[in-house]
Simulated assay, not measured.
Amino acid sequence: MERQEISRIAHRDHPIAAPLSDEAVRTLLDRLLRDRPAGRLLDLGCGEAPWLLRALAARPALRGVGADPDPEALRAAQRAARLLGVDRRIGLHHGGVREFTASEPFDAVLCVGPTPALGGPGPALAAIGPLLAPGGTALLGTAYREGGGPPGPSDGGLPDLAGTLAAVRAAGWLPVAGHTSSRAELDAYAWARTGALADWALDQPPGPDREQALRVADGWRERWPGSRGGGAGFVTMVLRQGS
């Protein structure tokens, strides 16, 4: 199976592909779109577009655009948009987040999850900047390294939280709000995605897909309990461009 299919299966029970509770998602969207009941919202790496769909359902004058390289996730997003009655206010584009371009800027841009694929917070914000209208806001979500010591191969070279904030500031952006995922949110996310993948695998006949899914779930599970007191955290920031 391809990585995208594994991710879709793993997120069946946790539609936000990040360790965030429903309350945290609602609070962050409210802050991102404060004083913007209308306008245009972009989600880079939208997947099945849960952030966009929640924003559009709550704001009847808002329009949304999502971009993602996974065509099946986009088809699922389109089906969900029809069920919610927001399909006329959403546009979905198949392609990589690096390649996305727009003819007019957006009032707000979401990028929660694909930050490492873009090269880290600095390069991600460099990609977001040209897509954002003056005075607009961005929502950036990214993992960071917990615990002491320098970054290394075991943690993917992630900076710690202070280093993440320094990279944001060095890129010319300022946090105006944010959410650091709690241990409960991190644990709930880990339980959901390892459990969903194992559950799916146990319903499959013996074969390569079943074995791959179980192997991936086992790997995630082995790394997760060892992260207590270290490992990775997750921070989601509402940002504005500064001097």
Rank of each mutant, 00 (worst) to 15 (best):
H94P: 13
A162W: 09
L110D: 07
P123F: 09
T101R: 14
T101P: 15
L165T: 01
T115S: 14
A124T: 12
F100S: 02
A108C: 07
A143Y: 11
L132I: 12
C111Q: 06
G135E: 12
L139E: 09
A117G: 11
D160K: 00
G163A: 04
L158W: 08
D160V: 00
L83N: 15
P121A: 13
L132A: 14
T164E: 05
L92S: 09
A143F: 11
G95H: 08
L158K: 10
G96R: 07
I90L: 11
H93W: 15
A126P: 08
R89C: 05
L140I: 11
V109E: 03
G148V: 12
S103P: 15
D160P: 05
L84G: 06
F106H: 03
A162H: 15
D160L: 04
L132D: 12
A80K: 13
F106A: 06
R82A: 11
E99Y: 05
A126G: 13
S103A: 11
T137K: 13
E99R: 08
G141I: 01
L131G: 09
L158Q: 06
R82Q: 13
R82L: 10
G85L: 06
L125F: 08
P105S: 12
G120L: 00
V112E: 00
G135K: 10
A80I: 15
G163H: 00
G147A: 07
A126Y: 10
T101Y: 12
G157Y: 02
P153V: 01
G152P: 08
P153L: 03
D155N: 11
L92Y: 07
P114D: 08
P150M: 15
G119W: 01
A102W: 02
E146P: 12
P151L: 04
P105T: 10
L161F: 09
P134N: 08
A133C: 12
V97E: 04
C111A: 08
L92E: 05
A80S: 13
G113C: 09
A102F: 02
G119E: 02
L140S: 11
V168N: 00
P121H: 10
A167F: 00
D107S: 04
L132K: 10
G135I: 12
I128P: 01
L139T: 03
